[in-house]
């Protein structure tokens, strides 16, 4: 597989679901170089998942511009593929068929598609389950298949919407490492949304802290740590503490609409500390 990353340019992006709803987020600006891994962290309701859906072309912007390699994103594309919180595999298909379905949509010849599917399944170490029905896999295995289904499209950008949140700790750690190493190996960009500060430190080149209502990017922190990253590494722990402090500060910025936001943010922090 030969995959390249993409230059991401988000300028003054603002979104509201409809005219009766308040703004979800406003004036979000992000610039990312090809191959960079961005993690957006923020508490529930700050608009981070909505931002991800807009980048994927699954939602329209209200105002502002979103460019991927200087191309305006208007609709979904196999060049920027999203992985969701749940794998959402098609249960009537086996692993190979699930991984290859995007190529089928794109009209790929069967033989070439088969070769690419095998390669993608190999990347996520699921070769021995290739013929198994998707329903017979564990949650972690299903999420690996979903990752292969995304990678087989040779995307320039992989969008991840809390894809490991439903997994057990061991599977989550293994997948965090695998996704980062695969993305680095292939040179693709990652934009991931998470609540988990550890996940951000372990996977990101840059962490964007989003907070407030409407949501805003409060901090943009570069995470210059060596790979492979270990949770017990003092440098990782120190970065985690920094990020936690920034997140805490950002979460205490009073919202435009809700004066009680500060109390809600405190409640949320307890959850974050326990991650």
């Amino acid at each position: 597989m030969s995959i390249r990353g993409v230059h991401i340019s988000v300028k003054d992006l603002t979104h509201r679901y409809n005219s009766k709803c308040p703004l979800t987020f406003e004036k979000v600006n992000i610039e990312a170089e090809p191959g960079e891994a961005l993690i957006i962290i923020g508490r529930s309701g700050c608009g981070k998942s909505t931002l991800l859906h807009i980048i994927a072309g699954l939602l329209a912007t209200t105002s502002g511009t979103l460019l991927l390699n200087n191309e305006v994103v208007k609709k979904p594309s196999s060049r920027w593929v999203m992985m969701f919180q749940a794998p959402h595999l098609f249960p009537w298909l086996n692993v190979e068929q699930n991984v290859g379905i995007g190529l089928k949509f794109a009209g790929w010849p069967k033989k070439e598609a088969q070769a690419r599917v095998a390669e993608a399944i190999g990347l996520v170490h699921m070769e021995e389950f290739a013929k198994q029905n998707a329903q017979n896999l564990s949650g972690g295995q299903q999420q690996r298949v979903a990752l292969a289904r995304s990678l087989v499209m040779e995307p320039e950008l992989l969008l991840l919407d809390e894809p490991f949140s439903a997994l057990d700790a061991f599977t989550r750690t293994a997948l965090q490492k695998d996704v980062r190493s695969i993305a680095k190996e292939l040179g693709i960009n990652i934009v991931m949304v998470t609540h988990d500060i550890d996940e951000a430190v372990l996977m990101a080149d840059r962490a964007l802290v989003m907070a407030g209502s409407p949501g805003k990017i409060m901090h943009d922190i570069r995470i210059d740590l060596e790979d492979p990253r270990d949770r017990e590494d003092p440098a990782v722990q120190s970065m985690r503490a920094n990020l936690m402090q920034m997140f805490h500060d950002a979460s205490h910025v009073p919202s435009d609409d809700d004066p009680s936001d500060e109390v809600a943010a405190d409640g949320d922090m307890s959850t974050l500390h326990s991650v």
Binding site: A56, P76, H88, F90, W92, L93, G102, F105, R149, M153
Partner: peptide
């Protein structure tokens, strides 16, 4: 039918015909 299947299919480049043949009918 799980609405997320439609979202995943669109995300992978499916057009309405693909969604009918490869998602709705098998589902």
């Amino acid at each position: 039918v799980d609405p997320a299947w439609f979202k995943v299919a669109k995300n992978l480049g499916a057009n309405p015909w693909h969604i009918l043949i490869h998602i709705i009918l098998p589902a």
